[in-house]
Design a binder for these strands. Structure first.
Length: 493
RNA sequence: CGGGGCGUAGCGCAGUCCGGUUAGCGCGCCUGCUUUGGGAGCAGGAGGUCCUGAGUUCAAAUCUCAGCGCCCCGACCA
């Protein structure tokens, strides 16, 4: 050790400060985030500015997210369809607030087939305009409603500053676009999806979220009201994890989408749209991972269990392989697992590798275990090693996966709750938003002037106006005017 | 787009200030042997548009100019 220390120190201490290749969170949170992505081999920067290559490990997580959300959308009556990537400029300009909000961050195609196009094509930043220009032809009668369509797609928003998964120029998402015969029904749909998002975040991402709606300033360009779920990352910053918009009649009026109601009267349709993106992968990373790398909640882990046979000699190698195979023979199709019997790496290397990748459970099986009719099970969330009898192992593993899922949610909830504060004095607020940071429940009068003050002085924003907040009279923390309830303020991604 | 840092092998870096052998080191990779319960050891080997383009020079990783990209901090956003 002493002999090696010079070499290791020089290597290990370079930029990372430690030998494992992952910067500790408290040293540099941003670098830690990037290191985790690299260590777990999730994604990398591409030749295109602001765009990323999602590598197989990262894409597999997105596929897990997609699979579950898609089931939930279908359970609530939605179907999938696909609309084009390109949107004619004229369509983009139909809804005033919408175009004003999105035009600055749009990529525009001006040439095609070697010639200048007569009309420029916007690469979709979101699909409301192309979809409503299409729905116009689909809707005549109340009998054509509701339309409950979702699409899985890529979109492009020309952002100034990008970060892997959290904000990239091109990203993958789903966008739901629904049409309804009444305002009440549209509102119901908006809230129904909001609840799908909340449930998904808590039950699958194991990320507790605050549920509410956005201030006028923060809402979607073209929406009547924007609902959202907000999660807290380990650095105590907020991350908007999903949005659901009640668009009212803004788009149906802009695109003149009308239907005849039961009385034969012509009305404009009521609309909603809602989406979550590959940003959720970033949320996943920043909610659970630690200084040893990625930590995946079992329900979203593409690979849930890895078995590592351990041997000394060649003969033993074959024996341990066989044990591992016999042990898991009945697991096929029931659980996603892998036997890592590669001979070129030693066990310690494999332990570390799967740890970095966030695999929830590792099972070690060596000669000692075989003799004792047991295996050694290691939890990724706690690092705890448990000797387990081989009998009925699958059921015990499945139970443990649920326990890990649960533990991750509890842990994230504890962090969030411990860092959500109720404050009434502005000085108190501005001191604590810097240190230790977190979410702050404060009274707000509702004026944009006061809202801007948060931003200017603390670089924090009103993340959401919580739905479940108990009504409470108070005085705006900025101007002292009467306030009907508290809002959640935080620094955010 | 403003401020700061950086760009040399897959990754992390030295070399650049002060131009001059064949551009090095660690990790990783390939081959062989020994190993294998927390990142193995030894030996041999492969791998380079020194970010790009112009310029200065007998000579450029090194100097000059321009551009591109990445990271961090702001303004804009899922």
């Amino acid at each position: 050790m002493f002999v090696l220390s010079i070499g290791i120190r020089k290597q290990g201490m370079d930029r990372l400060g430690m030998a494992k290749g992952i910067t500790p969170r408290k040293e540099d949170y941003s670098q830690w985030y990037l290191d985790v992505i690299a260590a777990a081999d999730l994604a990398e920067h591409s030749a295109v500015k602001g765009c990323m290559v999602i590598k197989p490990n990262g894409y597999a997580i997105w596929e897990m997210i997609q699979g579950q959300l898609d089931r939930m959308f279908k359970e609530t009556g939605h179907v999938n369809a696909y609309f084009p990537l390109f949107i004619p400029e004229s369509l983009m300009h139909k809804e005033a607030e919408h175009v004003e909000g999105f035009a600055p961050e749009c990529a525009v195609v001006t040439h095609g087939g070697g010639k200048k196009l007569e009309e420029a094509l916007f690469v979709r930043p979101t699909s409301e305009t192309i979809i409503w220009s299409t729905y116009k032809n689909w809707i005549q009668s109340y009998r054509d409603l509701p339309i409950l369509i979702n699409q899985w797609a890529n979109v492009v928003r020309w952002e100034m500053r990008t970060r892997l998964f959290l904000r990239t120029t091109e990203f993958l998402w789903q966008e739901g676009h629904t049409a309804h015969a009444s305002a009440a029904e549209a509102e119901e749909e908006t809230l129904k999806i909001l609840d799908v998002y909340r449930r998904f975040a808590e039950e699958y991402l194991a990320a507790p979220v605050y549920v509410g709606f956005k201030s006028e300033k923060e809402k979607f360009a073209g929406a009547v009201r924007t609902y959202c779920i907000e999660a807290m990352m380990q650095d105590r910053k907020a991350l908007q994890a999903g949005t659901s918009h009640n668009l009212g009649q803004n788009f149906s009026k802009a695109f003149d989408v009308t239907f005849q109601d039961e009385q034969g009267k012509l009305q404009h349709v009521y609309a909603t749209s809602w989406g979550v993106s590959t940003r959720l992968v970033g949320a996943l990373i920043m909610t659970h991972s630690d200084d040893n790398g990625l930590v995946l909640p079992p329900r979203l882990a593409p690979l849930k269990v890895v078995l590592i046979p351990i041997w000394k000699e060649d003969a033993e190698m074959e024996r341990m392989r066989q044990h591992a195979q016999a042990l898991t023979a009945s697991w096929q199709g029931k659980i996603s697992f892998k036997i890592d019997d590669r001979d070129q790496y030693r066990p310690g290397y494999k332990f570390n590798e799967w740890e970095k990748r966030g695999i929830p459970i590792r099972i070690e099986i060596g000669p000692k275990d075989v003799a004792a009719q047991q295996v050694v099970v290691v939890r990724r969330d706690t690092g705890e090693k448990i000797a387990m009898p081989q009998e009925n192992l699958l059921a015990k593993i499945e139970a443990l996966l649920e326990e890990i899922q649960n533990n991750l949610l509890q842990r994230a909830r504890a962090l969030r709750d411990d860092n959500t504060f109720t404050v009434d004095a502005y000085d108190d607020f501005s001191a604590r938003i810097e240190n230790p940071g977190g979410f702050f429940r404060v009274h707000w009068c509702g004026s944009e002037l006061c809202e801007n003050k948060f931003q200017e002085t603390s670089r924090a924003t009103i993340r959401t106006i919580p739905l479940d907040e108990t009504k409470e009279q108070g005085a705006c923390i900025v101007c002292g005017a009467p306030s009907k309830g508290r809002v959640l303020v935080a620094k955010s991604y």
